[in-house]
Simulated assay, not measured.
Amino acid sequence: MLKSVLVASDLSSRSEPAVQRAVQIVEATGAGLTVLHVVEGDLLEDRMREEVRSAEGYLSSQIAGFDLSSKTEIVVTMGHAFHVICEQAQDCKADMIVLGAHRRQFLRDVFTGTTIERVTRTAGRPVLMANAKTAEAWRKVFIATDMSEASGHAACKAHALGLLDNAEVTFVHGYAPITRQMMTHAGIPVERVHEEAEREFQSTRRDLGRFIQGLDLGDLNYNARIIEGVGADAIAGLVEQAKPGLLVIGTRGLSGVKRLFLGSVAQDLMGSLEIDVLAVPPQA
């Protein structure tokens, strides 16, 4: 279970959902909460002290608006946001980092190199990007899986942290029906193509069932859904249709047509979705 959560705020409106989500999580789990703000830039000493006092006052006022029973610490420090967030996460032994999203339509194109992307890639622990406008408990959770070790680890980590409790959990797997495509191009009769496509689908379904059963998920209740198509667009299309509250993804995976997460797919999903996204690195 969660013992410590770190949420980073830049004091802007886009950080408010992150703070609200972090509060909701620690209230549900009893974890401790650290609220961090990083003052960046080369400021004069007096100006720097003023910025720190202002940020501390703002965050204290924001947290006071919640009925928190968990231990809460406010930290305002100077430095580069990416480095400070990672260092603070290590210092407070955070089980998870919560960050607010940059709400820009072109985020998908500029995601690489942002603070969120760099923290996700290097912090060595799960990063929750809070996109949802409300901090209601997640009623529906999707776990994107390509049946790789990385995606399996992401599912196990989300379960171990208690983030799947009391939610309708669905494993989502995308696949490309290669046999049907090849047979269609070869001019094979439609009936035969359909038979082979069904056989391929049933094989994928059995593989997915064995993969999920092999995970250490205890008595977790879950569903599984196979969609046609691979990559971020296929997952994003289903998310738009089904509207889960949370998507869990692994940040790395294996290569090949059945292996979705090569880094860029996870980045595309984090940069384009309007729901909460939990990215879990292999080393978490």
Rank of each mutant, 00 (worst) to 15 (best):
L33N: 09
V38L: 11
G79E: 12
L59P: 01
M183F: 14
T184F: 13
L43T: 06
L220V: 00
L273K: 05
R206I: 08
E87A: 15
C156L: 01
Q24I: 02
A284K: 08
L208I: 08
A123T: 05
G237I: 06
I143R: 01
L217R: 00
L163F: 07
P244V: 03
S264M: 11
N223A: 09
S148W: 01
T77E: 15
I188A: 14
A18K: 12
P17Q: 10
E56N: 15
V75Q: 15
G237W: 02
V35P: 02
E16S: 09
A160T: 01
Y175A: 04
F201A: 03
A28C: 06
V23K: 10
P126G: 00
M183C: 13
V98C: 06
A154I: 06
V75T: 14
P177S: 01
R252P: 02
Q181A: 13
R125C: 07
L99D: 12
V248E: 07
K258A: 13
G253M: 10
R139L: 06
E240W: 02
Y58T: 15
V190D: 12
A154P: 04
G187W: 15
S60C: 10
V19I: 15
Q283F: 03
F106E: 15
I249A: 04
G100E: 09
Q20S: 11
E240L: 09
L164C: 00
H194V: 12
A266L: 05
P126C: 00
A176L: 13
D233G: 07
A158Q: 07
L262N: 11
V35L: 14
I63Q: 03
H102F: 10
T122S: 10
F171Y: 03
G237A: 13
D276E: 04
E16G: 01
F106Y: 15
G209L: 05
V141P: 04
A94F: 04
L262E: 12
A135V: 06
D207T: 06
F211A: 01
A154T: 09
V277A: 03
A137E: 10
L99A: 11
K243G: 00
E195D: 10
Q90L: 14
L44W: 05
A135W: 10
I226Y: 00
K133D: 13
D165I: 05
A232N: 06
D207N: 07
V127F: 01
Q90R: 14
